[in-house]
Amino acid sequence: MDLSRPRCRHWRELVLLASLLACGTRQAYSQISIDPESLLGIKGFRTVLVLQNVTQDVQEYSWHRGANDTAENMIVSYKPPSDTWQSGPMFSGRENVTRTGSLVIRRSALNDTGNYTARVDFGNRTEKATGCLSIQELEKKPDISANASSVVEYMDPVAAICYTNATNVNWYVDYTRVSSNDRMTISPDLKTLIIHRVSRYDRTLQCETESIPEFPRRSEPLSLSVDYGPDKVQLRTSHIILNGILSAKIGSEVHMECNAISRPSPKYHWTHNGSLVSLSGAKIILPSLAWEQMGRYRCIVENPMTQLTMYREFQIQVHRSEHSHVVNRGFYISGAKVVWLIVITVLSSVYLCGILIYILISHFSTRRQRGT
Rank of each mutant, 00 (worst) to 15 (best):
Q234Y: 01
I212K: 07
L39H: 05
P266L: 06
R320K: 12
T55H: 10
D182N: 15
V58W: 06
N147L: 09
T70Y: 06
P266R: 06
Y29I: 12
E95S: 14
S187D: 09
S238M: 01
H10T: 14
E253I: 07
T366S: 11
S187E: 04
Y332D: 06
T345G: 12
P142C: 09
E220M: 10
N73I: 09
N303D: 03
H239V: 00
Y268E: 08
W171E: 04
V178I: 15
N165M: 01
T372C: 04
F45C: 08
A67T: 07
S102Y: 02
E313R: 03
V97K: 00
G335Q: 13
S92C: 03
S265T: 13
I261H: 05
V346E: 03
D227H: 15
P213C: 02
R125K: 13
A336R: 07
V178E: 10
H325V: 09
S348N: 13
L21G: 09
D189N: 13
V346P: 13
G24I: 07
S211P: 06
I241R: 01
H319P: 08
L21P: 03
L360M: 08
Y163E: 14
N53W: 00
D83G: 15
D202Y: 04
S87A: 06
A260C: 10
C353V: 12
G44Y: 07
D156P: 02
G93I: 07
S278R: 10
G295K: 05
Q56G: 07
S19I: 05
A22Y: 13
T84W: 04
S134I: 02
N303G: 11
I240S: 13
D227C: 14
C353W: 10
L341F: 05
S321K: 03
N168A: 09
E220V: 10
P304S: 02
S324C: 13
Q293E: 14
K283P: 12
I195W: 10
S38E: 05
S349T: 11
E322G: 08
D112Y: 02
L138F: 04
T126H: 00
C8N: 15
L110E: 14
F45Q: 14
G131P: 08
R12V: 15
E313F: 06
F314V: 04
R263E: 11
V326I: 08
T98M: 03
T84I: 12
L341P: 01
N68A: 08
R197D: 13
C162V: 09
S199E: 05
S219I: 11
R367Q: 12
T237I: 00
